[in-house]
Design a protein around this nucleic acid. Structure first.
Lengths: 112, 112
DNA sequence: TCCAACTATCATGTATTACAAGGTACATGG
DNA sequence: CCATGTACCTTGTAATACATGATAGTTGGA
């Protein structure tokens, strides 16, 4: 299972999806599902965390096909956070990839 | 804190480091510390997991400067696992980056 | 009418795992 | 003889992804 890989990236992915337009939890699951596996049991607690951090705010919109939809929209702080997370993400990917090159390179033998 | 980002990648990083040469936990911490933050409290439980999965095997080597060192070496299965993890890692990075591109058009309209 | 299916919300419990904090043991130099 | 550095290990905690299932409104069919 690569569920562990997702830890810490789902927040960022959700924020990124919201940066492309307001959405609600149920729809976010299907949007993200186009690229990765996510479930509702993950999304709802996650959205509450994002709201608790004030990275998103909500408004209700009535739906003709079921209960009202709770739309989420990025706050200014959320946008800042997204930028920060993306930067950390790229640094992290760089770090990991540099470690992976140990396996390919085989000849490091430096300061030990 | 980006400790969550590491979930699921540390195993791979350790296997990659071992692919470059046998090592022991204490040394692995300092090797990986060159690229990322890791602590002993993380490493020792992790090594036991890797051994429980039979991805590494161990042998003792006496040291002139302290207790015997428990060296870890990759098993054939460990090498297979490393290759698999690297593949999953790259797919995962691709997935996440494709989600991040959802935001590309909007959030960073100006200061990119 | 009643029941199933679909949309949409949320809560509870479990597993994984990174890490801090603490403990053991051995060697060497002040 | 004690501090320091090497090297091992355990326990407890926090974060979080997810399975499962509850709640509720709408629509359409038997």
């Amino acid at each position: 299972m690569k569920t562990q890989l997702k830890k810490g990236t789902l927040d960022m992915c959700v924020l990124a999806a919201l940066a492309a337009g307001d959405s609600y939890a149920y729809e976010l699951v299907s949007i993200l599902s186009r690229s990765m596996e996510v479930s509702e049991g993950t999304m709802y607690p996650l959205m509450r965390r994002l709201q608790a951090e004030a990275w998103v705010s909500t408004y209700l919109v009535e739906s003709a096909s079921g209960p009202s939809r709770k739309y989420y929209t990025l706050t200014a702080e959320g946008r800042r956070q997204l930028a920060l997370m993306q930067q950390e993400w790229q640094e992290f990917v760089g770090d990991v990839n540099s470690v992976l090159q140990l396996a390919a390179g085989r000849a490091t033998g430096e300061t030990a």
